[in-house]
């Protein structure tokens, strides 16, 4: 059965790739994505080439003098440090590359987790809509959307000291699946009344079969779309949490960079420190969003052909 599923996904992919290629928005998104992917992978290589002083988290360039303008080791971009250095002398460029890597890891893991969970529950809830299990799942969803998750994350960090990255990812997954679930459920609800589902039932198809072979393929493109949206949201939330100072201190994410900048009161003194991280977050999130939008235009069921 899993093989069938994979075949389905492959089929959908092959079907839509040419359409995707011709879509300008999607291609721009893809290009930006590839650039950032390159950044992410280049990070460790850069450190290897340039030496341990360029480590994003702990590395410091000991040869630097104090910058009279900023009263710290923060220097504007130069030949040695392409994006300059931060207050303690760390290279900003390698921090930027590291941030890209973290952005991908965080964004994609949360997106995949939330989408898989949300789609599964959405399918179950929608297919058996109106029954007890649907009500249960929907009540849980309704309750969860009422809980503000950034404050919750803050409180959790308050109690446990600081937020480990894995903990963050798990909690984000637990809160993000609800959006996907709702959307998938409403799609499933409308699909299960279609005539061909009755047709399949009349030929003896089991519920399982109908869910996986008939309904799921129509729902998967929607899930992909939601997944791209979640990546952006996840990256932004992590940045927000790190900015407040509750992120994982062992990781130098983009949000952390902004946090340190503010903590060291360098926001107005060193523009080169505060700009790259924010722009990084913006563009990476934008790339996923653009790809998702182009998906939406291609596979949205409203593009039904008129008879």
């Amino acid at each position: 059965m899993i093989k069938d599923y994979i075949n389905e996904i492959k089929e959908i992919f092959n079907e839509n790739w040419p359409r995707f290629r011709s879509n300008k928005i999607g291609m721009i998104g893809l290009v930006i994505l590839i650039i950032f992917l390159f950044f992410a992978m280049f990070g460790p290589i850069y450190v290897k080439i340039m030496g341990p002083e360029y480590l994003p988290v702990n590395g410091m360039d000991l040869s630097l003098e104090i910058n009279p303008n900023t009263n710290s080791y923060a220097w504007p971009p130069s030949l040695k440090h392409i994006m300059g250095t931060d207050a303690k002398g760390s290279d900003i460029f390698s921090q930027f590359l590291n941030g890209s890597k973290l952005g991908f890891i965080i964004g994609i893991s949360i997106a995949i987790g939330a989408t898989v969970l949300g789609t599964t529950f959405g399918l179950i809830s929608g297919y058996w809509g109106g029954t007890l299990i649907d009500s249960c799942i929907m009540r849980i969803v309704d309750i969860m959307i009422c809980i503000p998750f950034l404050p919750l994350l803050i409180i959790i960090s308050a109690v446990s000291g600081s937020m480990n990255l894995i903990t963050f990812i798990i909690i984000m997954i637990m809160f993000s699946w609800t959006g996907v679930c709702r959307v998938v459920r409403s799609q499933t609800l409308s699909l299960r009344t279609r005539l061909y589902i009755d047709s399949a039932k009349a030929t003896g198809a089991s519920n399982c079969r109908i869910l996986f072979k008939h309904i799921a393929p129509n729902v998967i493109p929607l899930s992909f779309y939601e997944m791209t949206m979640i990546v952006g949201a996840a990256i932004l939330t992590e940045a927000g949490l790190s900015f407040l100072g509750f992120g994982d201190p062992t990781q130098m994410s983009w949000g952390m960079m902004i946090n340190y900048c503010r903590a060291q009161s360098h926001v107005f003194k060193s523009l080169w420190w505060i700009l790259p991280s924010g722009l990084g977050i913006t563009f990476l999130s934008m790339a996923f969003y653009l790809i998702g939008r182009s998906f939406d235009e291609i596979v949205n069921p409203r593009l039904r052909k008129r008879k």
């Binding site: 005539l195 061909y196 009349a202 030929t203």
Partner: peptide
């Protein structure tokens, strides 16, 4: 039982899965 019966529906456009 389902193997011994068959059903033909009214709407030829909707009774087949478009995918």
């Amino acid at each position: 039982f389902r193997k011994k019966i068959g059903m033909i529906f009214q709407d030829p456009y909707e009774s087949l899965n478009p995918r």
